[in-house]
Amino acid sequence: MNPTDEAPSKTRGNLFSRERTAFEWALLLVSAGAIGTIVIGLLIYAGNQAGGEAKLVAGFARAGTDRNGGPQFEVTVRNTGGSGAEQVVTEVSLGQDTRLVTMLRIPKDDEASAIVTFPAGSSGDPELQLLSYNQP
């Protein structure tokens, strides 16, 4: 037998009363704590989960101008629903100009943002419209 190989424990199966080193106790306690945190956390999450479909809230804010003087806007879409959304398409209009923004994925309880740039000289009241999205 290799000197580093150990004989089978004589206390096989005796999970709670087995003699352990301090290192083994530390490993076991840290591991059990991590498992407990994840499992209890997921159970609490399941209990509090809103459930149902994705609920998207879109907003925008002026984000300055590009190097050519074109106005820029930051579009933010937040998903407050109970499931994720994919292929989220929004349309930003500024006067006669429009820009489509496609966000690939927005998990639930998360948000995504993107910057859109209009040509220099574009003017008017900016408008934002949520056009479509898919639920995976």
Binding site: M1, N2, T4, D5, E6, P8, S9, R12, L15, L27, L28, V30, S31, A32, G33, A34, I35, T37, I38
Partner: peptide, 22 residues
């Protein structure tokens, strides 16, 4: 993960599983 010892599978699985979360 302990060479030559497969007699404590439950304890080893708990340790491996817990540390994997970390």
């Amino acid at each position: 993960f302990h060479a030559g010892r497969t007699k404590r599978p439950f304890e080893d699985a708990v340790v491996g599983f817990g540390l994997s979360f970390l």
